Computed example of a mutant assay.
Amino acid sequence: MTAELAVALVPVAVLLLLAAWLAAAGTAQVRVQLAAGAAARALARGEDPGLVAGRVTEVVGGAVLTVRQDGGLVRVDVSAPVSAPLLGAVGSLHGSAAAPLEADAQDAP
């Protein structure tokens, strides 16, 4: 019975590690989406784009920030790489948000 238990523990351990990695990837996705929303709001208030990009990369390591302004809206896209143990980079996470420009920000140069 001990040998069977030892053999059965390997797949259980692999499944637990996979579940933990998926939970971490889900948390990272939430972090990317929240960073996009915070960046959109900050840029809509007229904050310095370089400072906002620095904050995003501080919160989400390796993030790339793309900003567009459409009429009275600021649109922000954030993407960040996701990696898996032993596999390296396996894809990327994306988050996007939009915020209306505030009156003071529209008058700023």
Rank of each mutant, 00 (worst) to 15 (best):
T2N: 11
T2C: 09
E4Y: 11
V7L: 15
V10N: 10
P11W: 12
V12G: 14
V12S: 12
A13L: 15
A13C: 15
V14E: 04
V14T: 13
L15D: 01
L16I: 11
L16H: 06
L18S: 11
L18K: 13
A20C: 14
W21A: 12
A24D: 04
A25S: 11
A25R: 11
Q29A: 14
V30Y: 05
V30A: 15
V32T: 03
A35H: 03
A38L: 13
A38Q: 13
A40F: 06
R41H: 10
A42L: 08
A44V: 06
R45P: 00
R45W: 00
G46L: 09
E47F: 06
D48W: 07
P49D: 02
V59Y: 03
V60Y: 02
V60N: 00
V60P: 00
G61N: 14
V64L: 12
V67E: 01
D70G: 07
D70C: 04
D70R: 13
G72L: 00
L73A: 12
V74G: 01
V74M: 06
V74S: 02
R75W: 03
D77V: 10
S83V: 10
P85H: 01
P85M: 01
P85R: 00
L86E: 06
L87H: 02
G91A: 05
G91N: 09
G91H: 09
L93S: 07
H94V: 14
H94D: 12
G95M: 03
G95I: 02
A97I: 03
A98W: 10
A98E: 11
P100H: 01
L101N: 04
E102I: 01
E102Q: 09
D104F: 15
D104A: 12
D107K: 00
A108N: 11
